[in-house]
């Protein structure tokens, strides 16, 4: 930037150079224009750290990544710990209502008044009834379908197609005893924090999910 400024002022006529205030004003204007130009020509970038492996938590990273890619942004998503579940070849994502008081328990079928009921199910039941999570997951999938919300698989496919960089945490693979064959081949890299941080540093938007 300073080289550019020096070059520009060097090309000014001699009498203008003598007038410091005028030169300052000229430089400020030119600098502001240049900054604006750089900002406008820059490709925005998004980097996400995805750390959760349940169906509900799979949505935010994939929705944001696919939408950013559609806007023409450069996108990197670093999947670590349970987030790696989202990169498995076979997605078996479930949702747990236990310990999640923010999750409405509604039925995705039946008459409208019935669907409107928020079932208050005690934690003891949710924890003790075998298969409760399977049922909750099934109901959530049905709700998603009814509402025209994309499946995780669909959003992930869009991300891959749009060139989103999917990065997997190598440490987690070793820690949980996974093999690379468990995961989709479209993963761009098996990396660590030292690779992701410099990417995040340069990103305009950086999120931890």
């Amino acid at each position: 930037m300073s080289t550019q400024a020096e070059k520009s002022s060097a090309s000014l006529p001699g009498d203008l150079l003598k007038h410091g205030a005028a030169l300052d004003a000229w430089f400020d204007q030119r600098f502001a224009d240049k900054l604006k130009e750089i900002e406008e020509n820059k490709t925005p970038s998004l980097s996400i750290i995805s750390t959760k492996g349940t169906m509900d938590w799979a949505y935010p990273p994939f929705i944001l990544a696919s939408t950013a890619a559609a806007l023409g942004w450069e996108v990197n998503v670093f999947f670590t710990f349970y987030g790696l579940e989202l990169l498995k070849k076979d997605l078996h994502l479930e949702v747990s209502a236990l310990g999640n008081p923010g999750m409405p328990m509604k039925m995705p079928f039946g008459p409208k008044w019935f669907q409107g009921i928020n079932w208050n199910i005690p934690n003891l039941v949710m924890a003790g009834v075998p298969g409760f999570e399977k049922v909750a997951t099934g109901l959530m999938k049905k709700t998603v379908k009814n509402s025209g919300v994309a499946s995780i698989q669909e959003l992930r496919d869009v991300c891959i197609e749009a060139g989103v960089n999917l990065l997997a945490c190598q440490m987690t693979v070793d820690l949980f005893g996974y093999t690379r064959d468990d995961f989709i081949p479209e993963i761009k890299g098996w990396v660590g924090a030292a690779t992701f941080l410099p990417i995040a540093r340069k990103s305009d938007v950086s999120l931890f999910i």
Partner: peptide, 13 residues
């Protein structure tokens, strides 16, 4: 129609 965010944008793109 009947699709939720972000599908309309993704389909349009």
């Amino acid at each position: 129609r009947k699709l939720s965010c972000p599908l309309p944008i993704l389909r349009a793109k």
